[in-house]
C-alpha cells in the first residue's frame, strides 16, 4: 500500500508541473481533475488498515467534487468564454517550471523541520502538500486568464487536502462537510463572478482588471 500512496502523491506533483508547463486550458483542467481523483483515492490507501464507511464517503465525495463537478464547471466556463489557451502568462512556461521545481525543493526543506508523528506512513505527504499549495499560488500569480487563476485556486485547495488526509481520523465529520461545502460555494461564487466579468469586460483576461490602483 505504501507504494500506491507514493505513486498517487507523485501523480499529484506531476499534475502540478504539467499545469505549470503547458498552455492549453483544457489539458490543464484535465490534469487538475486527475489530481482530484488521485487525492480522492489517497485516503483509502493512506489509512488502509482501517477503511471505514466514513473514509469511503469522503473518498467518493472528493472524487465527485474535485474530479468531475469543479472541472465540469470550468469546462463550461471556457466554452462560454470561447477560450482555449493560456496566452498571456506573466512569466514563460520554462521559467514557471524552474520555479515550480524550486518550490518543491522548498517544500521538502520546510517539511524536513517538521517532525512526523511516530507511525505515520508516507513521509512525503507533507512536502507534497506544501509544494502543491505553493505551486497553486504560483499558478494564480503567473497566469493571465482569471480562469487559470481559478484553476490555481483548486490546486491550492488540493494541496491543503493532501495534508488534511493525514488527519482525517482526528477531524469530525461535521467540519469536513462544512469545508467541502465552503469550497464548492467558493468556487461556485467565483464562477458566477467570472461570468459577470466576461459579460462586463468582454474578456476574462486578468490584465483588464487593473483599474483600481494608486
Amino acid at each position: 500500500m505504501e507504494h500506491v500512496t507514493q505513486l498517487l502523491l507523485i501523480l499529484v506533483i506531476l499534475a502540478n508541473l504539467f499545469v505549470l508547463g503547458s498552455h492549453p486550458l483544457g489539458a490543464c483542467i484535465r490534469a487538475v481533475a486527475l489530481q482530484g481523483i488521485a487525492l480522492g483515492l489517497l485516503p483509502l490507501f493512506l489509512h488502509a488498515e482501517e477503511r471505514s464507511v466514513h473514509l469511503v464517503f469522503l473518498s467518493i465525495g472528493m472524487i465527485g467534487l474535485k474530479g468531475f463537478l469543479l472541472p465540469g464547471l470550468l469546462f463550461r466556463a471556457i466554452r462560454d468564454a470561447a477560450l482555449r489557451k493560456e496566452q498571456e502568462p506573466l512569466i514563460g512556461f520554462n521559467t514557471a517550471l524552474v520555479l515550480g521545481a524550486g518550490l518543491i525543493g522548498l517544500g521538502f526543506a520546510i517539511a524536513a523541520k517538521l517532525p512526523l508523528p511516530p507511525g505515520t506512513a508516507a513521509s512525503i505527504v507533507v512536502p507534497v502538500a506544501l509544494a502543491t499549495v505553493m505551486m497553486g499560488l504560483l499558478v494564480i500569480v503567473t497566469r493571465g486568464k482569471i480562469l487559470s487563476q481559478a484553476l490555481g485556486y483548486i490546486m491550492l485547495e488540493n494541496g491543503i487536502f493532501t495534508f488534511g488526509l493525514i488527519l482525517v481520523k482526528g477531524l469530525p465529520g461535521l467540519i469536513e462537510t462544512g469545508v467541502l461545502l465552503d469550497i464548492f460555494a467558493g468556487v461556485f461564487i467565483m464562477g458566477t463572478v467570472i461570468e459577470h466579468i466576461n459579460r462586463e469586460f468582454g474578456s476574462i483576461s486578468a490584465y483588464k482588471l487593473s483599474n483600481l490602483k494608486e
Binding site: 463572478v193 482588471l209 483600481l212
Partner: peptide, 15 residues
C-alpha cells in the same frame, strides 16, 4: 469597478 473589486476581494481572501 465594483466587479473588479469584488473579484480581487474574493480571490485574495479565498487564498
Amino acid at each position: 469597478r465594483s466587479l473588479e473589486a469584488t473579484w480581487k476581494y474574493l480571490l485574495i481572501c479565498s487564498v
